[in-house]
Structures are given as structure tokens and as C-alpha cells.
Amino acid sequence: MSEEDAEQGLNGLVARAVQGDRYAIEDLLTQIRPMVVRYCRARLGRTGGGAYTEADDVAQEVCVAVLNALPRYEDQGRPFAAYVFGIASHKVTDAHRRAARDLSSPVDEVPDSVDTEQGPEASAMAAATSVQLQKLLNVLPESHRDVLILRVIVGMSAEETGQMLGMSPGAVRVTQHRALAKLRQRIRPGAEVGA
């Protein structure tokens, strides 16, 4: 399957990159960067002026960290992407910590009050939708959120997601089901769950 081929190709690339093959390193980073950017954007959302500036910065930090860590990388049978996402996850956590003072950044708590500034029409706007969902996601347990992000945003299969997070594919499917159910509850309180 194409995804497996991609993973195979990535692993071959990683092997050469670890050896210091500059072209392989460049190819590798070119390949992982879009995934990292998506992941960071999904985790950090829009900040400040409504752009993904911070998320993209963190994504770049992740790429730097991957580059620095490459010489010490050893293939343990896990996909290289898992290694990358391990780094990304920590960088995002750091960014959250750093942004704790910045009120415009997502925090782990949902605001208690209803957002009075946006009526139904305004909240239908894409940006608001996205921000709202971002807030919802931040309430989910970490594993739920990560599964959703890896599957929907990064576009991984349940198997790959499981490898990333150290779960079985079955557990991934259960988790994603629960995550969706929780989000449904939050987005429309009282709605029939999973129906």
C-alpha cells in the first residue's frame, strides 16, 4: 500500500540521513515537515493575530531538533515518524508552557462563560469554528486528542497512529470513537451520543 511504501521510503531515507547523507537529510526533512507543521498547528491553533505563526515556528523548532538528534537515532523497529512526533509533542508542550502568560494562546481550560461576542452567524464563520474546535480539543484527554489529530489532520492510519502512541490499532479505534463522542457531547450538549 502506498502508505507502507512511503514509510519504507522514509526508513531508507532515515538510514542514509543518519549516516550523514546530506541529500537524504534534506529529503527527509522535506518529507516530515508538512506532517510536523500540521501537527503543531492542530495542537497550538491560531495565536495572536489569528495566524499559525507560533505553530509554524514550533514546527521549525521540531525540525531543527530532529536534525540535531538524527546522528543518534537508531532504528528500533518503530516508524521514524514516531520519533519525530515524540519530539514534536514535547516541543508543543514547551510552547504551551511558554505561552501560559499569553492570554491569546490556547490553554487547557475552556472558558466558563459563553462567548458573547459572536452570534450564530459569526460563529458560523470558518475561523471561529476552528478556534472553537481547538478549545474543545484541549479539553479532551491527551490520548484522545492525539489520536484525532494524527488521524484527521496528519492523515495517518489507525495502525500508524497506534505505532506513534504505543497503542494497538484496536485501541486507537476505540479511542477515536470516544473522542468523537465526547466532542459531540460538548458541541451539542444533550445530543445523542454516537447515534
Binding site: 543518519v18 549516516q19 550523514g20 531538533a65 540535531n68 538528534a69 538524527l70 546522528p71 543518534r72 537515532y73 537508531e74 528500533q76 518503530r78 514516531a82 520519533y83 512526533f85 515524540g86 519530539i87 509533542s89 514535547h90 516541543k91 504505543g166
Partner: peptide, 22 residues
Amino acid sequence: PRAADVEEPDVDVAIPRQKGEV
């Protein structure tokens, strides 16, 4: 990098290792 890997006995699951590193 290769020499380093050979002598690294504790290279483990990638994610936990990252904790200290980055």
C-alpha cells in the same frame, strides 16, 4: 553518528528518550 550509535546501549523507544534530549 554511527560510532555513537554502536556505543549507545540505552537507545530505547524513541519517545521516552526525547524527554531529556530536547
